[in-house]
């Protein structure tokens, strides 16, 4: 009797509920995603395709069609031959200028901001909160207001038009947001760790380098992404505070694209733009992976 009722009970729905794939909700969801995807990818498609065409083909107009004859000549020209003013060495000069500007700016700003954040959380001093508030307030002031005063400051300091002047400006302007970033991250590290290290006789730098730094790889990667992309993409400071020899890649790109003489070489312009955007893209891909790994390592637990 018991067996019979059991069998009867098992004839109905059983186990995991089957999922329907083609529901109205799913069609809406994936449909929208597809449209948005196309919307964002289309310009990239046009750029890549155009950069691989020769000028005669570009003139034919079909901007969406793939090249009939693939040529890398526009890329070579954009990198090494395009003229800006008297120089005809393309983007390469701007690329190396950007590298020379970005590397010290990123290192300097992250180094200072991380120590700032650490001191503001763990070594509170009289007025440290006021100091922090003022620093954060700095991030709300539009850059344009400070543009000219900084020209004067740099001139008086003898740094105007030099590489180090620009590095200094980038470091200063990165300070508010980076300090906030590091301060918040360090505040999530248990205070008892800091106390234990003090009882163990470690000082300001000892705790920073041996306790805090090894635990903070993820936030350093975040700061790295922020700074590299921010400084690499900067145009305003680069054009205002340096001279033509030192123009970063973005300014160089502008000068190539906007040069008024001769024919508009759309294919070269596209290639140049893609080249300039390549560095932030690579940083996203490479450090994005590192970033995830840093979090997954879960070193902060315990």
């Amino acid at each position: 009797m018991a067996d019979v009722s059991m069998a009867a009970a098992m004839t109905g729905p059983r186990g995991a509920k089957p999922k329907k794939r083609l529901t109205g909700r799913n069609i809406m969801l994936y449909g929208t995603l597809l449209v948005v995807c196309l919307y964002y990818l289309l310009p990239l498609w046009v750029m890549v395709m155009t950069s691989l065409k020769g000028m005669p083909e570009v003139r034919m107009g079909n901007i969406f069609s793939p090249p009939v004859e693939i040529t890398f000549q526009p890329w070579v020209k954009a990198w090494a031959e395009a003229c800006t003013g008297l120089n005809c060495d393309g983007l390469s000069r701007g690329f190396w200028n950007s590298v020379v500007i970005t590397v010290p700016s990123v290192i300097l700003s992250i180094a200072i901001a991380s120590v700032n954040g650490y001191a503001l959380i763990n070594w509170k001093f009289k007025g440290s909160d006021v100091f922090f508030t003022i620093l954060i307030f700095g991030s709300f002031i539009p850059y344009q207001i400070m543009l000219y005063p900084i020209v004067i400051l740099l001139r008086e300091a003898g740094l105007y038009g030099s590489l180090w002047g620009l590095v200094l400006v980038h470091s200063v302007f990165g300070m508010p947001i980076l300090t906030l970033l590091f301060r918040n991250y360090f505040s999530s590290i248990p205070e008892e760790l800091f106390k234990a290290a003090r009882v163990d006789g470690a000082g300001f730098w000892g705790i920073y380098f041996r306790i805090m730094l090894p635990m903070s790889l993820p936030i350093f990667v975040v700061a790295l992404i922020l700074q590299v992309t921010g400084i690499w993409n900067d145009f305003l400071f680069g054009v205002v505070y340096t001279k033509p020899d030192l123009y970063p890649m973005t300014v160089q790109l502008n000068n190539i694209v906007n040069s008024v003489q001769g024919v508009k070489e759309y294919n070269v312009n596209m290639a140049a733009t893609l080249l300039t955007g390549l560095v932030p893209l690579v940083v996203y891909f490479v450090s994005g992976k590192l970033f995830v790994r840093g979090i997954a390592a879960g070193a902060v637990k315990g």
Binding site: P190, E192, L193, K195, A196, A197, R198, V199, D200, G201, R210, I211, P214, M215, A299, V300, K301, G302
Partner: peptide, 19 residues
């Protein structure tokens, strides 16, 4: 300084250096 006082301290959250 804490390290000069001749004390050892044990914390609630253990406070072991994770790395």
């Amino acid at each position: 300084e804490p390290s000069e006082r001749g004390i050892g301290m044990v914390f609630q959250s253990y406070a072991l250096y994770p790395q």
